[in-house]
Nucleic acid binder design. Structure first.
Length: 285
DNA sequence: AAGATCAGCAACCGCCTGACC
DNA sequence: TGGTCAGGCGGTTGCTGATCT
């Protein structure tokens, strides 16, 4: 309890605070070349004066090549609200269902914007002027996501990020499906193997055109292309996007067991793609 | 122009869990 | 079977830049 990690102890001189570009470069190139086998050994191997936890955090939240960064789209925002309603503060589980977003990013987004937003929508304050009560500092902000999310398209570059269940997801999924899943060892290796691509084998179905884009992008970066799976259990079309999302989100919130499955936003930052459970994904791989 | 305020974000901290011995 | 270790997670803090007064 509260044990200090050996790698973070005072005895070893470890740097703290913001990462320098050089440190980023060292870490990224090391992981690109060797992957991740053991975080605690990475600082030494990469020539960094950081603790393993810090390296992991930096990689997961910032350096990972599949992070899309940039503003959250309206659909992502809706999804986060729905998922939070169903899952609570399980940021990692929410992040697992939002490709290209880290749990930290989602957590920050929630704490900074959505919680406030939802509070404003509550009956007491919803009485009319929640918006007008907002400080001018917020109202006038030109880059207010409130405006941008609806007008700006989400980042067009989107590298596929397969849903790699966390150990806790495995437990939950196994409990729900009565199946034996991959061990947690697979998870740790998945982080490192992401660069090389094998984890893609568990990637669920994606729309054919999106898959083609992703594969092209993957080919550019030398990553093994995602297997093209076109099976879809969603009847959603671009035309029916709005109503489809409504029903989709409602179903998701109404039926928490639904969340043991998986779903994706497509690469255009738009609507969700097909739904396919992690286990189905395994069946296809 | 300068200080105050605020939002966004990166990173740290403490704790929990599973694997290993 | 219990202890130790490492990975992972959620909560929180502190810094930075933008905006307002």
């Amino acid at each position: 309890m509260g044990r200090v990690h050996p790698c973070c102890s005072e005895e070893k001189k470890v740097r703290k605070g913001l990462w320098s570009p050089e440190e980023d470069e060292r870490l990224a190139s090391h992981i690109a070349r060797f992957g991740v086998s053991c975080w605690s050994s990475i600082p030494e191997l990469a020539g960094l004066q950081r603790c393993g936890k810090s390296c992991r955090l930096r990689w997961m939240n910032y350096l990972r090549p599949d992070l899309k960064r940039g503003r959250f789209s309206q659909h992502e925002e809706d999804l986060i609200i729905a998922l939070h309603k169903a899952l609570g503060n399980s940021w990692s589980q929410i992040a697992a269902r939002l490709p290209g977003r880290s749990d930290n990013e989602i957590k920050n987004f929630w704490n900074a914007r959505l919680r406030k937003k939802l509070r404003q929508k509550e009956p007491s304050s919803a009485s009319s002027t929640a918006g007008s009560k907002e400080p001018a500092a917020i109202r006038n902000r030109p880059n207010s996501a409130e405006d941008d999310d609806r007008t700006k398209p989400a980042p067009s570059v989107f590298t596929p990020y397969p849903f790699v269940p966390s150990p806790r997801d495995h437990v939950a999924a196994a409990a729900a499906a009565g199946a034996s899943g991959a061990s947690s060892c697979d998870d740790s290796s998945a982080v490192g193997s992401f660069v090389a691509g094998p984890a893609m084998a568990t990637c669920p179905a994606v729309p054919a055109d999106a898959a083609a884009d992703r594969n092209a992008a993957a080919a550019d970066s030398g990553v093994t292309p995602t297997p093209s799976l076109t099976t879809s259990t969603s009847a959603c079309t671009d035309d029916a996007r709005g109503s489809c999302d409504d029903g989709f989100l409602r179903a998701m919130v109404d039926d928490p067991s639904f969340l043991f499955g998986d779903f994706y936003l497509d690469g255009d930052g738009g609507h969700h793609g097909p739904i396919m459970s992690f286990w189905e994904g395994h069946a296809f791989s």
